[in-house]
Every structure is written in C-alpha cells, then in structure tokens.
C-alpha cells in the first residue's frame, strides 16, 4: 500500500508517471486527434471525465468484484462512462464530436484508463483513487495540449483556430498529417528523457 502524500500522489501523474511522456500509454488518441488544439482539448477532457468516474466506481466496489471477472467489470464500467461522454459531446458539442469521429468511443480501449483501474483503483481507497485519476488525467491533458499546440501552430499557423503566424508563414502540412504526430511525439519523448536523465544526475 502506498505511503505517498496526497500532493505527491497527484503530482506523479504530471511528470514522473506521466501517461504519455513516461509510460507511453494512450498513444492512439495522442497521435490521432492532436492535429488541432480544440480536438486535443476535447479528447483530454473526455478522458478525464471517464478516468475520474471509473476510478471512483471501481474503488467503491472493488471488494465486491471476484478477481476472475474484474477486467470484464472494469470494461463495463468504463464503457458506460465513455458512452455518456460520447452522447454528451454529440448533444452539446456536435462539431467537436464530428471532428473526433470514432476516437471518443475508442476511449474504452485507452490503456491509461484500464491500467489505472487494475494498478491503482482496485487496490486503494476512494480518496486516493480520485487523486490518482486527477493527476493522471491532468498529465494526459497537458501532454495532448503541448502536442496539439505545436502541430496546429506549425501545421496551420493557427492556435485554437486564431491566426498566430504572419502572412510570411507557409504552413508545414506534414505537421497535421500522421507523420507530423509521430515526429512531434518523438521529439517530445526525447526531451522528456533528456530532462529526466539530467534530473537524476544532479
């Protein structure tokens, strides 16, 4: 059982155990929907909603679930919250829902969510599970925002749809294509490793 303080429990998701930059989890949506900041933000928030509520439910009912059917139970819980997020986006943010396409329903198979249920919520109290989910989802959201900001600014010359680059700028179309996602993520992972190795040495 962990003895981390509440603060440390939250902060680990932001850097030390950041799901994208350190654990390399949830890379499918990370690569697929970060062509614009608004879709990256929407995906980050939808994942946050699902992760927090799934963690709360799983940590609440963990003692009732037989180990043999735990994964199936987690998936039913996760899929329910994903469907709610999907319906909500379709009803209240229709253009964003259209832009995200199948990636909202695919949050069901996002490894961050199932991973946190198996590794944390099923073994910890409701309070700690909530803090862990908040930290992990904030880390995921931040990674998506950094990646999508770089891709939108360089790939389209805009930020949140507003022109930020002058008329001299010719958009690098590759940045909003899948190749641009891999290149940007690769560079970010390299920077994260470099920072980590420097921190360990000092």
């Amino acid at each position: 059982m962990t003895t981390k303080t509440i603060r440390a429990e939250y902060l680990k998701g932001l850097w030390d155990e950041n799901p994208v930059l350190r654990q390399l989890l949830g890379l499918c949506p990370t690569l697929a929907v970060t062509g614009t900041v608004i879709t990256g933000l929407a995906m980050g928030l939808a994942t946050t909603f699902v992760l927090i509520l799934s963690s709360l439910v799983v940590s609440s009912i963990k003692k009732l679930i037989p180990a043999q059917v735990r994964i199936a139970t987690y998936i039913v819980v996760i899929a329910s919250f994903v469907t709610i997020a999907d319906q909500f986006l379709k009803a209240f943010f229709y253009p964003i829902s259209e832009a995200l396409g199948p990636y909202v329903p695919l949050i069901v198979v996002n490894c961050i969510i199932l991973g946190r249920q198996e590794a944390f919520s099923s073994r910890n109290s409701i309070g700690r599970s909530l803090i862990d989910a908040l930290g992990m989802s904030t880390g995921f959201l931040l990674a998506l925002l950094v990646l999508s900001s770089i891709r939108e600014i360089l790939g389209a010359g805009t930020f949140l749809g507003y022109q930020v680059m002058g008329p001299w700028f010719k958009p690098w179309i590759i940045m909003i294509l899948p190749a641009g996602a891999f290149i940007t993520l690769g560079i970010l992972l390299g920077i994260a490793l470099k920072i980590e190795s420097k921190t360990k040495r000092s």
Binding site: I65, V69, A79, T83, I84, Q87, K90, Y94
Partner: peptide, 30 residues
C-alpha cells in the same frame, strides 16, 4: 461472478438508457 456481472450490466444499461433518452432529441436536432 454471474451476480456481479449481471448487476453491473443492468445498472449500466439502465443508466445509459436514461442518458440516451435525455440526449436523443438534441442529437436529432443537431
């Protein structure tokens, strides 16, 4: 095992039916 999965499935199904009812009209309007 049967009891837990059935209960979770039923609660989840009921909840989703409610959400679908609430959002159905608005999605059709969109």
């Amino acid at each position: 095992m049967i009891l837990v999965l059935t209960t979770v499935g039923l609660i989840s199904g009921g909840f989703l039916a409610g959400v679908a009812k609430l959002t159905k009209e608005r999605i059709a309007l969109n």
